[in-house]
Simulated assay, not measured.
Amino acid sequence: MTLAMELLCQTHSDIKTIITDLELPVCDWDDKWIDVYLDNSVKLLDICIAFSSELSRFNQGNLLLQCALHNLTACPSKQLVRACSSLDGWRQHIGSKNPKLQNCFAILNSLTETLSLPKVKNAKGKVLMRAMYGVKVLTVFVCSIFAAAFSSSANKLVDLQVVETCLWAEAFENVQAYVNGEIRNIFSSGRTTVVKELEAVQLSVKTLYPAIQEGVDPKEAEALQNSISELGKRADRFSQGLDLLTKEVDGFFQIVLTGRDALLSSLRVGSSGPDTANNVQGQGVRQIQ
């Protein structure tokens, strides 16, 4: 997931380079292109906020794990009740739903419905539209996978139909079919998450929780310590993964935000009069709202 988000960041950075290389001034852009770009950028910012919220929720859950591990490591025989309470709190926290994620599916549906390759006569405009179309396809694909992974459901996975004239259409559809198929297989098999680090922690908690509930049997003390140690290692790996992914999601948010700001700034600079400038500013405010 970290590498996928890193790719998305790089792709959105590349589109800025393409726009610069084309030397196609913003004042020459069709108004519809600008409207679509501004609308899409707001939706992507909303998606990033939802993903950041979920990652923050996972990190909050990790605090409960660390509390349980501290009690068990310090003196397991005296802190079993507290450890049980923390582990139970973690299970409930992880099993709860994040309402902000539900909005992601509506946004992704909206982006999918507007996914089209407009017909453009201008040569540079045609190159720009094809590039932006490809970026949008990749963005919806990756964000759809993230939404499915975070919500623990494959019901809302998006299966995109790409314009056949794109040279990369077949390759993309093959990757999409494979990845979406794997995710659907995971959930249909009864597993509750596609995030391997989270699943590893869940398995450790599932083993450890009933063991400490029943009390520490001196004969099984060593096995219990091994389980505690294993949970600690898995929790650390999960936490490290969250930190890396959070960094990439924040980076994607900044790339989208700066790209949007740059476009609005160019429109203001290129406006021919105060009325045009006011219209541009009004448009920006409406899109953000």
Rank of each mutant, 00 (worst) to 15 (best):
N279C: 15
N226A: 13
R91F: 11
D28R: 09
I145D: 01
L3Q: 15
N180S: 06
S144K: 02
G251E: 00
K16L: 04
A211Q: 06
N278A: 14
M1I: 14
S204W: 00
F150K: 03
L224W: 05
I34C: 12
K233Y: 06
N71W: 08
C9W: 05
L224M: 02
I47E: 05
A106R: 07
H70Y: 14
A74C: 12
L244P: 00
A68H: 00
C166P: 04
E113V: 00
R286H: 11
N122P: 09
A123R: 12
N279T: 01
K121P: 01
V195D: 15
C104M: 03
I288H: 03
H12A: 02
T114Y: 11
E214K: 15
E199Y: 05
F187G: 01
Y209L: 14
G273K: 03
I47G: 06
H70V: 08
V140P: 02
R260S: 08
K196F: 05
Q287S: 13
S144L: 13
L87E: 05
V36M: 05
L167W: 12
N122A: 15
A223G: 11
G190S: 03
I183F: 03
T207C: 14
Y209E: 13
S53I: 01
A74L: 08
A68I: 02
A277F: 10
M5N: 13
N103F: 11
A149S: 08
P274Q: 07
A277L: 08
S229V: 07
L157F: 09
N122I: 11
S41W: 06
P274K: 12
W33Y: 14
